[in-house]
């Protein structure tokens, strides 16, 4: 059975996918905020990135050191094929669930 991703995991994976090579914790948080309007805590981003890497959905590498970080490297993430498959599976699962659902307008 496909493991369904949590909402937070989906958002982080999608942000990493959108950012490509520039995905690191700060940019991922900013991207989620900018695109989804959700302000996640830094801790939640780090812990989720760590968990997704443990599951094999992401792989991290250190970038070249930059001046604006005082000569320190960024820990950048890349979406792995397993992560992409998990995202697609979650998307399909949600899509199936949405099929035929009509919510009454104006109701919470």
């Amino acid at each position: 059975m496909t493991q369904v991703l949590g909402e937070l995991e989906q958002m982080v994976l999608l942000a990493v996918a959108r950012l490509g090579d520039d995905a690191y914790a700060v940019s991922v948080r900013d991207e989620i905020h900018a695109q989804a309007g959700v302000d996640l805590s830094r801790g939640a981003i780090y812990v989720t990135l760590d968990r997704l890497e443990d599951k094999g959905y992401l792989r991290s590498r250190f970038s070249e050191p930059t001046r604006e970080r005082g000569g320190k490297a960024r820990r950048c993430f890349r979406l792995e094929p397993e992560g992409a498959a998990a995202l697609r599976a979650s998307q399909r699962a949600l899509a199936r669930l949405w099929q035929g659902v009509r919510l009454a307008a104006g109701r919470p």
Binding site: Y24, A25, V26, R42, Y46, D50, F62, E68, R69, G70, K72, A73, R74, R75
Partner: peptide, 19 residues
């Protein structure tokens, strides 16, 4: 509190945002 493989990069991220 932070695993060793994360500690330095988290500190650097915080410093970058602070600057």
């Amino acid at each position: 509190a932070v695993p060793s493989q994360w500690a330095e990069s988290v500190a650097a991220d915080l410093e970058e945002e602070w600057a």
